[in-house]
Design a binder for these strands. Structure first.
Length: 371
RNA sequence: GGACGGGUGGGUGAGUGGCUAAAACCAGCAGACUGUAAAUCUGCCGCUCCUUGCGGGCUACGGAGGUUCGAAUCCUCCCCCGUCCA
């Protein structure tokens, strides 16, 4: 079997230590997946990412379909080869763009019509098309197309979106069974249901019957409170089979990650470390640090005195502030490196704590310092 | 010596009688960012007072006077800067 998921240890909280094996390598879980939407994690080279210990990257179907085009990537030998990334890749289906490009799209049962944010041209994405693209890209993990909606959506709207997402999941599974190669790619279903516990429960239950090799929980952290995110995650995760990986999509803040892990989440991705880095927001063991703040102008300390990343070992806050405020690209590179290191370091600590049964202690440590 | 053109808040620079504490941009200060339309976006940015409000007072468009109910805007003189002519 090219794909294999095993749970190596569990914590009383529900946290799991696991290992997901793919044709491009192993992913130790709980895992954080840096986001490389356009086949690049902005500001980092693939070598940087390998050196950071990144085991899996996320890329985006919609963006790569628009540019450079999935057929071109197929021609170039697939996404791994094209971007020279030897490790696993998970591709998001474009479902999030249904949400974030809401002004530029129209959803029907058949699929989604987008107006390209690049040039305004019209494109149609169906569950089948989204998979066809992901098959051309050759990602290790494909996501079904889903309809991600606002947290504030009414129950009827949410129900409709969840039902549509379920129908799309079924179509995706069927399409993958006919055209996909399970030795090469795995397909995850996505639980929707907004902020309505009953819908989440129902949707998760129905989705499990489709027997996906892995499950994602989507449509969260889109405006609702953290406690609601956790509640919905709990409701969904508790209905997912224990022997399959669970991926909570699009989270989270450093201080929230452990909460999700304790709810049994195995995989997460988030633009926060990379985007925040570009915006001058650095994560530290003592909380967030806005590097442009005047107070760091002559601060010789590293970003985080407890951090062992290459940036903290070498550069001062004063220098990083200078780079940021002068708009130097090195600021993006160094800030991104630090934030990714910080996220990956948390994940490593979490895995270690689950292995050694110290998760509660880690939790109180983190709680005391972060935020 | 003469002829034009010009002097606006930290900078560039709009504004030719009231809607102007003065556009816009930059700089500065602060905040946000959760499956990336994001190296982006938002707020503040003369001083001061308070019951923090589409609140009060003061100062401000080179300087000094003047016209006017009202002047960055019109007039007079002066001081600077630029271009050109002697």
């Amino acid at each position: 079997m090219a794909f294999h998921f095993e749970v190596l240890a569990t914590d009383p909280s529900g946290a799991r230590l696991g290992r997901l094996t793919t044709p491009h390598g192993v992913i130790d879980t709980p895992a954080f997946m840096p986001v490389g939407t356009a086949a690049t994690v902005k500001g980092q080279t693939q070598q940087d990412l390998e050196d950071l210990g990144v085991q899996v990257l996320l890329a985006n179907t919609y963006h790569l379909y628009l540019r450079p085009g999935h057929e071109l990537i197929r021609k170039m030998g697939g996404l791994h080869r094209f971007m020279s990334w030897p490790r696993p890749i998970l591709t998001d289906s474009g479902g999030y763009q249904v949400f974030s490009l809401s002004a530029l799209r129209k959803v029907t049962d058949e699929g989604v019509t987008f107006r390209s944010h690049v040039d305004g041209s019209e494109h149609f994405l169906s569950p089948e098309k989204a998979l066809e693209i992901q098959m051309a890209l050759g990602s290790d993990i494909c996501m079904v197309l889903d309809e991600c909606i606002e947290a504030s959506a009414t129950e009827p709207c949410t129900r409709e979106a969840a039902a549509r997402t379920f129908d799309w999941a079924r179509r995706s599974r069927d399409y993958f069974e006919r055209h996909g190669d399970p030795e090469r790619q795995m397909l995850f279903g996505i639980v929707q249901g907004g902020t309505h516990a009953a819908l989440r429960r129902e949707n998760a239950g129905a989705l499990v019957a489709l027997n996906f090799p892995g499950y994602a929980i989507g449509g969260l952290a889109v405006g609702e409170s953290h406690s609601v995110t956790c509640e919905m995650t709990q409701v969904a995760a508790s209905r997912l089979p224990a022997d399959r990986p669970r991926y909570l999509m699009g989270v989270g803040k450093p201080e929230q990650i452990l909460d999700y892990v304790r709810l049994g989440v195995d995989m997460m991705d988030c633009v926060l470390p990379t985007r925040s880095a570009r915006h001058g927001c650095l994560f530290t063991s003592q909380g967030r640090l806005l590097i442009r703040n005047a107070q760091y102008a002559a601060d010789a300390r590293p970003i985080d005195e407890d951090c062992r990343c290459a940036v903290c070992r070498r550069y001062s806050r004063a220098y990083l502030r200078h780079l940021y405020s002068t708009g130097e690209f090195l600021a993006v590179i160094l800030n991104t490196h630090h934030n990714l290191y910080f996220y990956l370091d948390i994940m490593g600590k979490i895995r270690e704590a689950i292995r050694f049964g110290n998760l509660e202690r880690l939790r109180s440590d983190l709680q005391a310092r972060l935020t």
